[in-house]
Nucleic acid binder design. Sequence first.
DNA 1: TTGTAGGCGTTATCAA
DNA 2: TTGATAACGCCTACAA
Lengths: 350, 350
Amino acid sequence: MRDDDAAPESATGNRRKPPTINDVAQRAGVSVGTVSNVLNHRSTVSAARRERVLQAVDELGFSGSMLAKGMRAQSNSLVGLCVPHTAFANLAALADTLDERAVGADYELIQVVSRYDSRRELSRIRRLIAYRAAGLIIVPSLDPKPVLDHCYKAKLPTVIINRLVPDERRFDQVTIDHDKAIYDASRQLLAWGHRHITLAVQFPALSVTRQRIDSLSRAVGGFGGGARWGVLECGLDEERFKDIFASHVRRRDAPSVIIASNSTVTSWILQSARSLGIRMPDDLSLLSLEEPEWALLTEPQLSAVLQPTREIGRIAWDLLLKRVEGSAEEPVSIRCEGRINFRGSVARGT
Amino acid sequence: MRDDDAAPESATGNRRKPPTINDVAQRAGVSVGTVSNVLNHRSTVSAARRERVLQAVDELGFSGSMLAKGMRAQSNSLVGLCVPHTAFANLAALADTLDERAVGADYELIQVVSRYDSRRELSRIRRLIAYRAAGLIIVPSLDPKPVLDHCYKAKLPTVIINRLVPDERRFDQVTIDHDKAIYDASRQLLAWGHRHITLAVQFPALSVTRQRIDSLSRAVGGFGGGARWGVLECGLDEERFKDIFASHVRRRDAPSVIIASNSTVTSWILQSARSLGIRMPDDLSLLSLEEPEWALLTEPQLSAVLQPTREIGRIAWDLLLKRVEGSAEEPVSIRCEGRINFRGSVARGT
DNA sequence: TTGTAGGCGTTATCAA
DNA sequence: TTGATAACGCCTACAA
């Protein structure tokens, strides 16, 4: 039985029911099956009828219902992208690349933001599952375990990108090999005469942070010659960072170069250094592990690791599509290498 | 009749059908109506049964189907955001604000990218309509007419943001009042002694560009005293821009200040000026109509108009929600004012 | 308080 | 070649 009979259709005349395939069929004087066949280029419909149908479609502005299609097909051409934040340039580029691929494959990309909150992340992904998303590409939050477990239980095809989740073998991963970048960069810095390298980080507890510290330690340790390294914990508050930074670079045993783990920290360092009157690269060198769009606009220009964001996006999309299509191969972990662009912000040696 | 009998469920064991409300009912030993009532906090279900239902939901990992819900309810808690591009910081901030509001109101925000292509814009919005999006927030492309006509015909509640579409009275608009910013900024520049102002633009044909030129013309014309203004057409290619810029600032009648219409142009100007050895602000002053995130990182710091992006997002969301809920009030056009931050890149006074 | 059934829009199957 | 119909999962009016 109908719930609501004769929709108001008030004077405002606002809400209008979108035309359905039945409306089209009625207008064209054919059956729904015929309309569906025309729309999906199925079997052979006589030219005359096809014409009538197409005309009716046009007149009514019929656009179909992805809801009904998805329900009928028991699958939805929707792919989720879960990111912790939208405001980072490389995440924007990632979304851009994925959007392009998705549209090309006739999928919809729907982006959800976890805001670094594991609970929110989970609830957003539940929602994606409720929408019967065909797959998920996720930049994991700080505590990705619950979400990944959930995805696994729901058998949601999932690809992890950007940030490696250690010991995770259930999903494909396409991540950035920061460790190698740090190792290579450190060796280069040492070769240029730097003898004290500081790694500036925001999340010391993160396993990837520990891995980065390991890399730095290996590079410096293997070099010998009295070279040292240290870690600067930057926190999450720009105001408080200024003091932390000042005391770090003003102490007797100050580093000659800082490696900043992301572009937020990089920006903080630039500002703090300026207000403290620290000249770059004479007093201090700086290398960022993320290349921001403004890398060439600072004075001196910023040395940075150019992340292979678009490459990651492409690889991740291809992997995901395979999974969506049912591939049951062993999950892979692909590590993409960034390119280190040394520019004016790094002093090259005596 | 069933289309496919007994799904393969091959050795890979990959695809699993998500549990339905029927599965839950069966497991809990109750009827579907009871389950639905529990899930929607409806009527009074006996505590014992409710418990059984909730347990079954949990055991099965039931999450419902937004597809079926949307179909049944004839409305989908989905709102589209259509932007020309994702890589601009202020668009990212916009998406962020809207996502927050949407999630708060239990809506899903789905972003589509038009890539400055009117045809793509239309096709993406058709898709949103096919998903029965409840509403649309759109940053219009260069040629928004076809899309807006389509939205109007489909009675899709729509709010236009950021970029004003002149003479468009069918939809709410929440846009930035660049004209006022240009007028005010120009007056200030003139007061500081500048006598020749150039407006650097990318799309001369755009009506908003013409309006901006009008504002500049009014400000300079009203000032008198031999003040002049001009327009620099920057094109879309950074390489070619260098030559255009060089010949513009090297001619005898060169401007003392440039107003850049967006942050892309701003960035081009900064780079070109640097490679030409033009000092800022001594040789040339610069004001950007978009404040990029790196405004404080350049030397000198960049003067810019801080756009009220988050304010726009909030207002647009509230307007849209009203429309979605059926408001038929006269559409409004709200113009938000940016704040002009004069910094080191503008020379003050003689 | 609980159960039942019809319909939302689409597609595939089967019958004509 | 075309038409009629069941089924997808959910919600709700109505019956029990």
